[in-house]
Design a protein around this nucleic acid. Structure first.
Length: 441
RNA sequence: GUGUCUGUAGCUCAACGGUUAGAGCGCCUGACUGUGGAUCAGGAGGCUGUGGGUUCGACCCCCAUCAGACACCCCA
């Protein structure tokens, strides 16, 4: 391999992409902290044993290897299992319920595809140690706020409950083992249609009568109240499912109180979700602009932490897929379209004026303005303007003999080409004013 | 992990198995004034993803490998 190359499924992020990613991460951090969540950092590497036995079939996607000492290590598959490890390990230091967020890369040895990579960023927010429906509702509220602040206008959060899924399987006469298979088929409803699902169910040995029952229940649609009411009737007699419906109702009541618009969520009994550790609420956000998988997902997993600790620790949380968010936002033109970090370019007129320009640029920086100077004092103004233009900087300053003599600085608007003089002492305030006006429009 | 397709200049793409692999855009230099975008003139840039094979001769055909796209599978 003579020419440099990326490892399969792992990407570089050049400045324009990285700026959007950072905008996303910063926005999510702000929302998380607005809700009082605390940051947690854990290593990318864990003992393989820590990750094994929690993910079901997905386990084969874990990157595993041995270190120099022959220890079996693994790259983390998500940030949830490490959270569970931390909760068990530091149980004495953590006051529960604990609201924590974590942002970082995880790794899965999958075949890369649209919106799917082997190294991908997730932003997680979880409430550890509470089984209250208020915790579930808080997570959904964070989800809604985050997507709204990022600029999404037409997303929907699908809500479901593992015990509704279980109940539907049970009243259709299936045992727990078969239910998983069935739900994998139902999860594809949007993609292959009800006929396709019917066929798949048949292939998996579900009787036609049971398949029809399942399809009917799973395709219930309408207002959350209507869907829950109908499920109540249909699942009558299945205690766990009835309890799940009550739980969803309580969550929705809390959502309403927190002002989450009803148009943002639906009860969708067909939502399955793959990760095997979920035990209660499950949800994911979808948008018509991204047919390939969900933007984020999550749910309640009350037993996972208990696999490390002795007692069970009820937990609910979500994970944003940063790479998918990024790709969708790019397609929709959401977020800042900056290609660089600086806003102002200070030219250097000639080798005699180097000091004057350097002094000026430091003043701008002290005033909170991101600014750069030319690095080659002997290059002409034309070349310097060109550099400023190519970088996408909004303003260029000229400080030549004429300006120096008059105690002025020329401010050039690189978009319009217009140029005006400002007194040397007023430059920073004038630029702040211009930049604020530009940001507002 | 399975299947299909793709890989040529920084980017988008040409080139019948046959001379020295081309074009547009971009990049660099100059015309050019104390000033970018426009125009004109010139210039740099390639072991055709990589490694084998077939052939007198390979960008082109065959095999392998790496990377990418799409559809499965699954998921963020």
């Amino acid at each position: 391999m003579t020419s440099p190359q990326n490892i399969k499924g792992m990407r570089d992020h050049l400045p324009p992409a990285m700026l959007l990613r950072q905008h996303i991460l910063h926005t999510l951090t702000t929302v998380f902290e607005r809700h009082g969540f605390e940051p947690l950092g854990t290593p990318i590497l864990e003992y393989a044993e820590t990750l094994e036995g929690k993910l079901g079939e997905d386990e084969k996607l874990i990157y595993r290897f041995e270190d120099h000492g022959g220890r079996r290590l693994a790259l983390r598959y998500d940030q949830t299992v490490p959270l569970a490890r931390v909760v068990a390990q530091y149980s004495g230091q953590l006051a529960l319920p604990w609201r924590r967020y974590a942002i970082g890369p995880s790794y899965r040895g999958e075949r890369p595809g649209r919106g799917r990579y082997r190294e991908f960023y997730q932003a997680d927010a979880d409430i550890v140690g509470s089984s209250s429906p208020l915790a579930d509702a808080e997570i959904i509220t964070i989800l809604t706020e985050s997507l709204t602040v990022l600029g999404f206008t037409d997303f929907t959060t699908l809500l479901n409950h593992r015990q509704i899924i279980g109940g539907i399987a049970r009243v259709s006469g299936l045992d727990e083992a078969a239910a998983g298979d069935v739900y994998r088929a139902i999860d594809k409803l949007d993609k292959i249609g009800s006929d396709g699902v019917r066929e798949e169910l048949h292939e998996r040995g579900v009787t036609p009568a049971a398949a029809e029952r399942i399809l009917t229940l799973v395709q219930l649609d309408g207002s959350p109240d209507d869907v829950l009411h109908e499920l109540d009737t249909q699942l009558h007699g299945d205690e766990r499912a009835i309890a799940a419906l009550a739980n969803l109702r309580a969550i929705i009541v809390a959502l309403e109180a927190m002002g989450v618009p009803p148009a943002c969520y639906r009860v969708a009994p067909r939502l399955a979700r793959g990760l095997s550790y979920y035990t209660g609420l499950v949800f994911e956000a979808i948008t018509a602009h991204w047919p390939a998988g969900s933007l984020l997902g999550g749910g309640r997993y009350d037993e996972l932490v208990g696999m490390f600790a002795k007692n069970s620790v009820p937990t609910v949380g979500l994970a944003f897929g940063i790479d998918r968010l990024h790709d969708v936002m790019e397609e929709l033109g959401l977020g800042p379209r900056a290609t660089t970090t600086a806003a102002v370019y200070v030219t250097i007129f000639s080798t005699e004026q180097v000091a004057a320009s350097l002094t000026l640029v430091q003043e701008l920086r002290a005033a909170g303005i991101n600014a750069i100077t030319a690095l080659d004092a002997s290059s002409g103004l034309g070349k310097q303007f060109k550099e400023a233009d190519r970088k996408g900087l909004r303003y260029a300053l000229v400080l030549g003999p004429d300006e120096l003599a008059q105690g002025m600085v020329s401010i050039r608007d690189m978009q319009s080409g217009a140029q005006h003089h400002v007194a040397r002492g007023e430059v920073a305030t004038e630029l702040c004013r211009l930049l604020a006006a530009g940001a507002a429009s």
